[in-house]
Protein backbone atom coordinates (compact mmCIF):
# COMPACT_ATOMS: atom_id res chain seq x y z
CA UNK A 1 0.00 0.00 0.00
CA UNK A 2 1.83 3.06 -1.18
CA UNK A 3 0.55 6.59 -0.78
CA UNK A 4 0.03 6.86 -4.48
CA UNK A 5 -2.72 4.29 -4.45
CA UNK A 6 -4.21 5.35 -1.17
CA UNK A 7 -4.75 8.97 -2.10
CA UNK A 8 -4.86 9.80 -5.76
CA UNK A 9 -6.57 6.70 -7.14
CA UNK A 10 -6.30 7.87 -10.69
CA UNK A 11 -7.78 5.06 -12.70
CA UNK A 12 -5.49 4.26 -15.64
CA UNK A 13 -7.27 1.15 -16.82
CA UNK A 14 -10.95 0.50 -16.40
CA UNK A 15 -12.33 -2.86 -17.47
CA UNK A 16 -16.09 -3.14 -17.61
CA UNK A 17 -18.13 -6.33 -18.04
CA UNK A 18 -15.48 -8.02 -20.20
CA UNK A 19 -16.60 -11.28 -21.78
CA UNK A 20 -14.36 -13.48 -23.88
CA UNK A 21 -15.29 -16.74 -25.58
CA UNK A 22 -13.14 -19.36 -27.28
CA UNK A 23 -14.85 -21.23 -30.07
CA UNK A 24 -13.36 -24.72 -29.93
CA UNK A 25 -14.39 -28.12 -31.24
CA UNK A 26 -15.64 -29.12 -27.82
CA UNK A 27 -17.90 -26.12 -27.71
CA UNK A 28 -17.81 -22.48 -26.71
CA UNK A 29 -15.46 -21.93 -23.79
CA UNK A 30 -16.79 -19.00 -21.80
CA UNK A 31 -13.37 -17.97 -20.58
CA UNK A 32 -14.30 -14.60 -19.13
CA UNK A 33 -17.74 -13.93 -17.73
CA UNK A 34 -18.05 -10.22 -17.06
CA UNK A 35 -14.82 -8.97 -15.56
CA UNK A 36 -14.96 -5.57 -13.82
CA UNK A 37 -11.65 -4.13 -12.78
CA UNK A 38 -10.13 -0.71 -12.16
CA UNK A 39 -6.39 -0.37 -12.03
CA UNK A 40 -4.89 2.74 -10.53
CA UNK A 41 -2.07 4.71 -11.99
CA UNK A 42 1.31 3.82 -10.53
CA UNK A 43 0.25 0.81 -8.51
CA UNK A 44 1.34 -2.81 -8.76
CA UNK A 45 -1.70 -4.88 -9.26
CA UNK A 46 -1.84 -8.65 -8.98
CA UNK A 47 -4.16 -10.98 -10.86
CA UNK A 48 -4.10 -14.43 -9.27
CA UNK A 49 -5.90 -17.65 -9.85
CA UNK A 50 -5.44 -21.24 -10.89
CA UNK A 51 -5.07 -22.62 -14.40
CA UNK A 52 -7.96 -21.59 -16.63
CA UNK A 53 -9.29 -18.87 -14.35
CA UNK A 54 -8.89 -16.28 -17.09
CA UNK A 55 -6.10 -14.14 -15.69
CA UNK A 56 -3.99 -14.26 -18.85
CA UNK A 57 -7.02 -13.83 -21.08
CA UNK A 58 -7.92 -10.67 -19.17
CA UNK A 59 -4.59 -8.95 -19.74
CA UNK A 60 -4.35 -10.16 -23.30
CA UNK A 61 -7.75 -8.62 -23.92
CA UNK A 62 -6.42 -5.32 -22.63
CA UNK A 63 -3.78 -5.37 -25.34
CA UNK A 64 -6.22 -6.88 -27.84
CA UNK A 65 -3.98 -9.91 -28.25
CA UNK A 66 -6.75 -12.51 -28.16
CA UNK A 67 -6.13 -14.79 -31.11
CA UNK A 68 -8.27 -17.28 -32.96
CA UNK A 69 -10.40 -19.06 -31.89
CA UNK A 70 -10.89 -16.56 -29.09
CA UNK A 71 -13.09 -13.49 -29.34
CA UNK A 72 -13.99 -10.58 -27.11
CA UNK A 73 -17.76 -10.69 -27.21
CA UNK A 74 -18.75 -7.94 -24.82
CA UNK A 75 -17.41 -5.23 -22.59
CA UNK A 76 -15.34 -2.08 -22.55
CA UNK A 77 -11.73 -1.44 -21.61
CA UNK A 78 -10.95 2.20 -21.00
CA UNK A 79 -7.40 3.36 -21.17
CA UNK A 80 -7.13 7.11 -20.48
CA UNK A 81 -10.76 7.56 -21.39
CA UNK A 82 -10.66 5.68 -24.71
CA UNK A 83 -12.24 2.29 -25.21
CA UNK A 84 -9.40 0.08 -26.37
CA UNK A 85 -11.84 -2.39 -27.88
CA UNK A 86 -13.21 0.26 -30.25
CA UNK A 87 -9.82 1.37 -31.57
CA UNK A 88 -8.81 0.63 -35.14
CA UNK A 89 -6.06 -1.91 -35.70
CA UNK A 90 -3.67 0.89 -36.59
CA UNK A 91 -4.45 2.80 -33.40
CA UNK A 92 -4.14 -0.20 -31.12
CA UNK A 93 -0.75 -0.90 -32.64
CA UNK A 94 0.37 2.51 -31.43
CA UNK A 95 -0.63 1.53 -27.90
CA UNK A 96 1.00 -1.88 -27.95
CA UNK A 97 4.63 -1.69 -26.99
CA UNK A 98 4.49 2.08 -26.58
CA UNK A 99 1.88 2.56 -23.85
CA UNK A 100 1.32 -0.99 -22.65
CA UNK A 101 3.82 -3.81 -22.84
CA UNK A 102 3.85 -7.38 -21.78
CA UNK A 103 6.57 -9.53 -20.27
CA UNK A 104 5.73 -13.12 -21.12
CA UNK A 105 6.27 -16.32 -19.26
CA UNK A 106 8.78 -18.41 -21.12
CA UNK A 107 11.64 -16.28 -22.38
CA UNK A 108 12.84 -19.06 -24.65
CA UNK A 109 9.74 -19.45 -26.77
CA UNK A 110 8.86 -15.78 -26.75
CA UNK A 111 12.10 -14.61 -28.28
CA UNK A 112 12.54 -15.18 -31.99
CA UNK A 113 15.19 -17.89 -32.23
CA UNK A 114 16.70 -16.75 -35.53
CA UNK A 115 17.01 -13.02 -34.93
CA UNK A 116 19.80 -11.39 -32.95
CA UNK A 117 18.75 -10.08 -29.57
CA UNK A 118 19.94 -6.58 -30.32
CA UNK A 119 17.80 -6.44 -33.41
CA UNK A 120 14.74 -7.68 -31.55
CA UNK A 121 15.11 -5.01 -28.90
CA UNK A 122 15.98 -2.20 -31.30
CA UNK A 123 12.69 -2.76 -33.10
CA UNK A 124 11.04 -1.15 -30.10
CA UNK A 125 12.97 2.08 -30.64
CA UNK A 126 12.51 1.92 -34.37
CA UNK A 127 8.73 1.77 -34.25
CA UNK A 128 7.87 3.69 -31.10
CA UNK A 129 10.40 6.49 -30.97
CA UNK A 130 10.77 9.60 -33.01
CA UNK A 131 14.20 9.34 -34.54
CA UNK A 132 15.79 12.36 -36.19
CA UNK A 133 15.53 12.27 -39.93
CA UNK A 134 19.23 12.53 -40.64
CA UNK A 135 19.85 9.47 -38.48
CA UNK A 136 16.95 7.56 -39.95
CA UNK A 137 18.18 8.12 -43.49
CA UNK A 138 21.73 7.05 -42.81
CA UNK A 139 21.98 3.33 -42.34
CA UNK A 140 25.27 3.46 -40.51
CA UNK A 141 24.18 6.23 -38.19
CA UNK A 142 20.92 4.46 -37.49
CA UNK A 143 22.49 1.18 -36.49
CA UNK A 144 24.95 3.02 -34.28
CA UNK A 145 22.13 4.97 -32.68
CA UNK A 146 20.04 1.86 -32.10
CA UNK A 147 22.96 0.00 -30.65
CA UNK A 148 23.59 2.82 -28.19
CA UNK A 149 19.96 2.78 -27.17
CA UNK A 150 19.89 -0.98 -26.72
CA UNK A 151 23.08 -0.99 -24.69
CA UNK A 152 21.62 1.73 -22.52
CA UNK A 153 18.48 -0.28 -21.82
CA UNK A 154 20.49 -3.49 -21.28
CA UNK A 155 22.50 -1.66 -18.63
CA UNK A 156 19.25 -0.60 -17.01
CA UNK A 157 18.09 -4.20 -16.62
CA UNK A 158 21.56 -5.18 -15.39
CA UNK A 159 22.52 -7.34 -18.32
CA UNK A 160 26.29 -7.80 -18.25
CA UNK A 161 28.46 -7.07 -21.32
CA UNK A 162 25.60 -5.28 -23.00
CA UNK A 163 27.58 -4.35 -26.11
CA UNK A 164 28.66 -7.92 -26.63
CA UNK A 165 25.16 -9.30 -26.11
CA UNK A 166 23.80 -7.28 -29.00
CA UNK A 167 24.85 -9.82 -31.59
CA UNK A 168 23.85 -12.90 -29.61
CA UNK A 169 20.96 -15.21 -30.33
CA UNK A 170 18.40 -16.17 -27.65
CA UNK A 171 19.61 -19.76 -27.27
CA UNK A 172 23.06 -18.52 -26.28
CA UNK A 173 21.72 -16.88 -23.12
CA UNK A 174 20.68 -18.31 -19.78
CA UNK A 175 17.04 -18.27 -18.71
CA UNK A 176 17.55 -15.34 -16.36
CA UNK A 177 19.31 -13.30 -19.02
CA UNK A 178 16.59 -14.02 -21.56
CA UNK A 179 13.99 -12.81 -19.09
CA UNK A 180 16.02 -9.63 -18.66
CA UNK A 181 16.01 -9.17 -22.42
CA UNK A 182 12.21 -9.44 -22.40
CA UNK A 183 12.04 -6.90 -19.61
CA UNK A 184 14.40 -4.59 -21.49
CA UNK A 185 12.13 -4.84 -24.48
CA UNK A 186 9.08 -4.07 -22.40
CA UNK A 187 10.48 -0.89 -20.87
CA UNK A 188 12.28 0.30 -24.00
CA UNK A 189 9.55 2.62 -25.19
CA UNK A 190 8.75 3.91 -21.70
CA UNK A 191 5.21 2.53 -21.40
CA UNK A 192 2.54 3.50 -18.88
CA UNK A 193 1.51 -0.03 -18.09
CA UNK A 194 3.79 -3.06 -17.86
CA UNK A 195 2.09 -6.44 -17.64
CA UNK A 196 4.11 -9.35 -16.31
CA UNK A 197 2.33 -12.51 -17.44
CA UNK A 198 3.79 -15.29 -15.25
CA UNK A 199 7.09 -13.57 -15.93
CA UNK A 200 9.12 -15.61 -13.45
CA UNK A 201 7.32 -18.95 -13.54
CA UNK A 202 9.89 -20.66 -15.74
CA UNK A 203 12.83 -19.52 -13.61
CA UNK A 204 14.65 -21.04 -10.68
CA UNK A 205 13.94 -19.50 -7.30
CA UNK A 206 17.22 -17.57 -6.94
CA UNK A 207 16.92 -16.25 -10.49
CA UNK A 208 13.28 -15.42 -9.81
CA UNK A 209 14.41 -13.36 -6.84
CA UNK A 210 16.83 -11.46 -9.08
CA UNK A 211 14.10 -10.71 -11.61
CA UNK A 212 11.53 -9.68 -8.98
CA UNK A 213 14.13 -7.44 -7.43
CA UNK A 214 14.79 -5.86 -10.81
CA UNK A 215 11.09 -5.31 -11.45
CA UNK A 216 10.71 -3.70 -8.05
CA UNK A 217 13.61 -1.37 -8.74
CA UNK A 218 12.29 -0.45 -12.16
CA UNK A 219 8.89 0.27 -10.72
CA UNK A 220 10.36 2.54 -8.08
CA UNK A 221 12.60 4.35 -10.58
CA UNK A 222 10.13 4.64 -13.43
CA UNK A 223 6.90 4.91 -11.46
CA UNK A 224 4.90 2.87 -13.96
CA UNK A 225 1.80 0.78 -13.40
CA UNK A 226 2.68 -2.86 -13.06
CA UNK A 227 0.25 -5.73 -13.48
CA UNK A 228 1.37 -9.13 -12.25
CA UNK A 229 -0.43 -12.13 -13.62
CA UNK A 230 0.55 -15.17 -11.64
CA UNK A 231 -0.59 -18.31 -9.87
CA UNK A 232 2.07 -17.75 -7.22
CA UNK A 233 0.49 -16.14 -4.17
CA UNK A 234 3.93 -15.47 -2.70
CA UNK A 235 4.84 -13.18 -5.57
CA UNK A 236 1.57 -11.30 -5.16
CA UNK A 237 2.13 -10.87 -1.46
CA UNK A 238 5.61 -9.51 -1.99
CA UNK A 239 5.13 -7.43 -5.13
CA UNK A 240 1.64 -6.03 -5.29
CA UNK A 241 -0.31 -3.19 -3.71
CA UNK A 242 -3.67 -4.62 -4.64
CA UNK A 243 -4.88 -8.02 -5.79
CA UNK A 244 -7.76 -9.50 -7.73
CA UNK A 245 -8.51 -13.19 -7.28
CA UNK A 246 -10.07 -14.86 -10.31
CA UNK A 247 -12.05 -18.06 -10.41
CA UNK A 248 -13.54 -19.66 -13.51
CA UNK A 249 -13.61 -16.45 -15.51
CA UNK A 250 -15.16 -14.36 -12.75
CA UNK A 251 -13.56 -12.07 -10.23
CA UNK A 252 -13.98 -13.47 -6.73
CA UNK A 253 -12.42 -10.72 -4.71
CA UNK A 254 -10.48 -7.49 -5.10
CA UNK A 255 -8.64 -5.95 -2.18
CA UNK A 256 -5.47 -4.39 -0.96
CA UNK A 257 -2.82 -7.08 -0.59
CA UNK A 258 -2.57 -7.01 3.16
CA UNK A 259 -6.32 -7.12 3.64
CA UNK A 260 -6.66 -9.99 1.20
CA UNK A 261 -4.02 -12.17 2.81
CA UNK A 262 -4.86 -11.35 6.40
CA UNK A 263 -8.66 -11.13 6.20
CA UNK A 264 -9.84 -12.79 3.03
CA UNK A 265 -13.60 -12.59 2.63
CA UNK A 266 -14.54 -14.71 -0.39
CA UNK A 267 -14.77 -18.43 0.45
CA UNK A 268 -12.58 -19.30 -2.55
CA UNK A 269 -9.82 -16.93 -1.46
CA UNK A 270 -10.04 -18.36 2.03
CA UNK A 271 -9.78 -21.91 0.76
CA UNK A 272 -6.96 -21.07 -1.60
CA UNK A 273 -4.89 -19.42 1.10
CA UNK A 274 -5.41 -22.32 3.46
CA UNK A 275 -4.36 -24.85 0.86
CA UNK A 276 -0.83 -23.59 0.38
CA UNK A 277 1.98 -24.86 2.60
CA UNK A 278 3.78 -22.03 4.37
CA UNK A 279 7.50 -22.14 5.02
CA UNK A 280 7.25 -20.26 8.30
CA UNK A 281 4.00 -21.74 9.61
CA UNK A 282 4.22 -25.50 9.23
CA UNK A 283 1.16 -27.62 9.81
CA UNK A 284 0.53 -31.30 9.47
CA UNK A 285 -2.24 -31.42 6.91
CA UNK A 286 -3.34 -28.76 4.47
CA UNK A 287 -6.89 -27.63 4.01
CA UNK A 288 -8.22 -28.13 0.55
CA UNK A 289 -11.14 -27.09 -1.57
CA UNK A 290 -13.46 -29.92 -2.51
CA UNK A 291 -14.41 -30.59 -6.10
CA UNK A 292 -12.70 -29.69 -9.33
CA UNK A 293 -12.18 -26.61 -11.45
CA UNK A 294 -15.29 -26.12 -13.61
CA UNK A 295 -15.41 -26.93 -17.28
CA UNK A 296 -16.01 -23.57 -18.91
CA UNK A 297 -17.76 -25.01 -21.95
CA UNK A 298 -20.61 -25.73 -19.62
CA UNK A 299 -19.94 -23.57 -16.56
CA UNK A 300 -22.01 -23.68 -13.38
CA UNK A 301 -24.86 -21.19 -13.35
CA UNK A 302 -24.82 -18.14 -11.10
CA UNK A 303 -21.64 -17.89 -9.11
CA UNK A 304 -19.23 -20.28 -10.82
CA UNK A 305 -17.73 -21.26 -7.49
CA UNK A 306 -20.98 -22.44 -5.97
CA UNK A 307 -20.59 -26.21 -6.58
CA UNK A 308 -17.42 -26.18 -4.45
CA UNK A 309 -18.45 -23.52 -1.97
CA UNK A 310 -18.89 -24.39 1.71
CA UNK A 311 -21.30 -21.45 2.18
CA UNK A 312 -23.49 -22.31 -0.81
CA UNK A 313 -27.14 -21.21 -0.72
CA UNK A 314 -29.92 -21.62 -3.27
CA UNK A 315 -29.47 -18.14 -4.65
CA UNK A 316 -25.83 -18.85 -5.57
CA UNK A 317 -26.85 -21.26 -8.32
CA UNK A 318 -29.70 -19.10 -9.56
CA UNK A 319 -28.28 -15.65 -9.73
CA UNK A 320 -24.85 -14.36 -10.46
CA UNK A 321 -23.66 -12.04 -7.63
CA UNK A 322 -22.38 -8.57 -8.42
CA UNK A 323 -18.91 -7.45 -7.46
CA UNK A 324 -19.83 -5.29 -4.47
CA UNK A 325 -17.70 -3.11 -2.25
CA UNK A 326 -18.08 -4.51 1.25
CA UNK A 327 -15.26 -2.65 2.96
CA UNK A 328 -13.17 0.33 1.86
CA UNK A 329 -11.11 -0.83 -1.14
CA UNK A 330 -12.48 -4.33 -0.78
CA UNK A 331 -14.86 -5.87 -3.33
CA UNK A 332 -16.40 -9.30 -3.08
CA UNK A 333 -18.34 -11.42 -5.56
CA UNK A 334 -20.47 -13.46 -3.14
CA UNK A 335 -24.14 -13.29 -2.10
CA UNK A 336 -23.56 -14.64 1.39
CA UNK A 337 -20.65 -12.44 2.28
CA UNK A 338 -22.28 -9.34 0.83
CA UNK A 339 -25.23 -9.86 3.12
CA UNK A 340 -22.94 -10.39 6.06
CA UNK A 341 -21.03 -7.18 5.42
CA UNK A 342 -24.03 -5.09 4.43
CA UNK A 343 -23.84 -1.52 5.63
CA UNK A 344 -20.26 -1.77 6.79
CA UNK A 345 -18.82 0.43 4.09
Amino acid sequence: MTEATANTQDVILDIKNLKVNFYTYEGVVKALDGIDLSIYKGESFGLVGETGCGKSVTVRSVMRLIEEPGKIVEGEIFYKGNDVLKLKEKEIRKLRGAKMTMIFQDPMTFLNPVIQIGEQVSEMFLIHQKIQKDILDNKKKLSKYLKEKVVEIFDLVKLPDAAELFKRYPHELSGGMRQRVLIAMSIAADPDIIIADEATTALDVTIQAQILNLLNKLKKDLGRTLIFVTHNLGIVAEMCDRVAVLYGGQIAEVAETKALFVDPIHPYTQGLLRSIPLLHKPKDLLDSIDGVVPNLVNPPSGCRFHPRCPLKEDICAQERPKLVKVLPEHWVHCHVKQREYEGKV
Binding site: S174, G175, G176, M177, D204, V205, T206, I207, Q208, A209, Q210, L212, N213, N232, L233, G234, I235, V236, A237, E238, M239, T257, K258, F261, V262, L273, I276, L278, L279, H280, K281
Partner: peptide
Protein backbone atom coordinates in the same frame (compact mmCIF):
# COMPACT_ATOMS: atom_id res chain seq x y z
CA UNK B 1 17.11 -20.09 -1.14
CA UNK B 2 14.95 -19.39 1.88
CA UNK B 3 15.18 -15.69 1.34
CA UNK B 4 14.52 -15.92 -2.38
CA UNK B 5 11.20 -17.70 -1.96
CA UNK B 6 8.28 -15.30 -2.08
CA UNK B 7 6.15 -15.91 1.00
CA UNK B 8 2.37 -15.55 0.66
CA UNK B 9 2.11 -13.59 3.87
CA UNK B 10 2.54 -9.81 3.78
CA UNK B 11 3.13 -9.76 7.53
CA UNK B 12 6.17 -12.03 7.33
CA UNK B 13 9.44 -10.10 7.42
CA UNK B 14 12.51 -11.66 5.93
CA UNK B 15 16.01 -10.68 4.98
CA UNK B 16 16.56 -10.32 1.30
CA UNK B 17 19.61 -11.96 -0.21
CA UNK B 18 19.96 -11.71 -3.95
CA UNK B 19 22.53 -14.11 -5.38
CA UNK B 20 24.47 -12.86 -8.34
CA UNK B 21 24.72 -14.64 -11.65
CA UNK B 22 23.41 -17.96 -12.86
CA UNK B 23 23.95 -21.54 -11.81
Amino acid sequence: LGSALPIPDPLYEKKQIILRGDV
